[in-house]
């Protein structure tokens, strides 16, 4: 395996809108994510975070540039890419009429986890997330906290080396969000490469080893929190973010 799990080079994605014409949702971004690292994509809504992550998950086709996951090109080997990653977002719902256990078993199998080890893997995860009590109940009967745990277990059930969390704490209460953060840190410690997108500054500050500030489809700055602080002279990520954005907006205004 390469030392870099995710590599993104000059990645672009344009959409066409009848009234607005071409929209460059992602406009030539570069970054990489290594095993045991949480890489943060920090940006406002509509900055291009979700589009980037969807290209990595092979749901969207890039308009230009390249991206690879675990050494597999997103265009040439989409299935191998998807087998190497777990994707979690607010829009990846669960099947309401399956039980928690069935959900995990289903996703393990279709992600081609070795068939003879599926049962054992599912039980391990049930135990790890403490969901044994309700693993036999249909998902539709569960509370949102319970669903969240099953959803995370679903994301990692096939033990992928790369995990993508697209705004995972949106809509969660404080306790559930903290639980999510705990799990993500745990997974990082297990050596997973984690790409984490958020618009919540404190979350990025707390979790991410490196942070890319993304704005209007472009990465304005990339580095550790310390590097960002030194480059901008600001302490808090929120101020760093505003500083970088204002830099660009100001430059655009003067042109």
């Amino acid at each position: 395996m390469e030392s870099t799990s995710v590599r993104v080079e000059a990645l672009r994605k344009s959409f066409w809108d009848e009234s607005r014409g071409e929209i460059r949702a992602v406009d030539g971004i570069d970054f990489e994510c290594r095993p045991g690292e949480i890489f943060g994509l920090l940006g406002a809504n509509g900055a291009g975070k979700t589009t980037t992550l969807r290209m990595l998950a092979t749901i969207l086709k890039p308009t230009g540039g390249q991206a690879s996951v675990n050494g597999h090109d997103v265009l040439a080997e989409p299935e191998a890419v998807r087998r190497s990653l777990g994707f979690f977002s607010a829009s990846t719902a669960l099947y309401p009429r399956l039980t928690g256990r069935e959900t995990l078993e289903f996703f393990a199998r279709i992600n081609r986890y070795p068939a003879d080890q599926v049962g054992q893997r599912v039980e391990t995860l049930i135990e790890r997330f403490g969901i044994a009590e309700y693993a036999g109940a249909r998902v539709e009967k569960l509370s949102s906290g319970m669903k969240q745990k099953i959803s995370i277990a679903r994301t990692i059930v096939h033990d992928p080396p790369v995990l993508i969390f697209d705004e995972p704490t949106v809509g969660l209460d404080v306790m559930a969000a903290l639980e999510m953060q705990r799990v993500i840190l745990e997974l990082r410690d297990e050596g997973k490469s984690i790409i984490f997108s958020t618009h919540i500054m404190s979350e990025a500050e707390k979790l991410c080893d490196r942070i890319a500030i993304i704005h209007q489809g472009r990465i304005l700055a990339l580095g550790t929190l310390e590097q960002h602080r030194q480059a901008t002279g600001q302490h808090y990520l929120e101020d760093i973010f505003v500083h970088k954005v204002m830099e660009v907006e100001g430059a655009e205004d003067t042109t």
Binding site: I59, R82, F87, S91, T92, I110, N111, R112
Partner: peptide, 14 residues
């Protein structure tokens, strides 16, 4: 409508 399509499409299933 349920939001499960994206979950399914991000799996390794062809």
């Amino acid at each position: 409508e349920r939001g499960t399509l994206e979950t399914l499409l991000t799996t390794a299933a062809a």
